[in-house]
Amino acid sequence: MTFWLHLIILGLLGSLAGALWRVWVGPAQADRMMAAQLIGTTGIGVLVLLAVLQDWAALTVALALALLAAMAAIGFVKAASSDGAGDPEECAPGPTDARDGQR
């Protein structure tokens, strides 16, 4: 069991490395940010497995990360809004096909 869980954690870290590649190449800011989000979710998975492997106290940490998983992304959408304090939903959808139905 210990052996298997180590393998799974290594697999999760490999998946995380793939997401790091997306942070590096982008190209859009949203690409980098969502890759960071993926890394956060993967990290929660790793912590859950560490809880089984080492000590259930690791769940306390996983709970904190899950609670605040959206923090960075909210900071990002704030910073990306026109005055740096807003919400992307306040404006019309932007220069795209979403306005007139289909691509």
Binding site: A28, Q29, A62, L67, A69, I74, A80, P88, E89, T96
Partner: peptide, 27 residues
């Protein structure tokens, strides 16, 4: 933990998609 992660995912997906819609082509 899973419930909170789902809540965050549902929120982040919508917000980031919307921000990307506004930003398309920038950077």
């Amino acid at each position: 933990i899973w419930a909170l992660a789902l809540l965050a995912a549902g929120t982040v997906a919508q917000l980031v998609a919307r921000a990307a819609l506004r930003q398309e082509g920038r950077e």
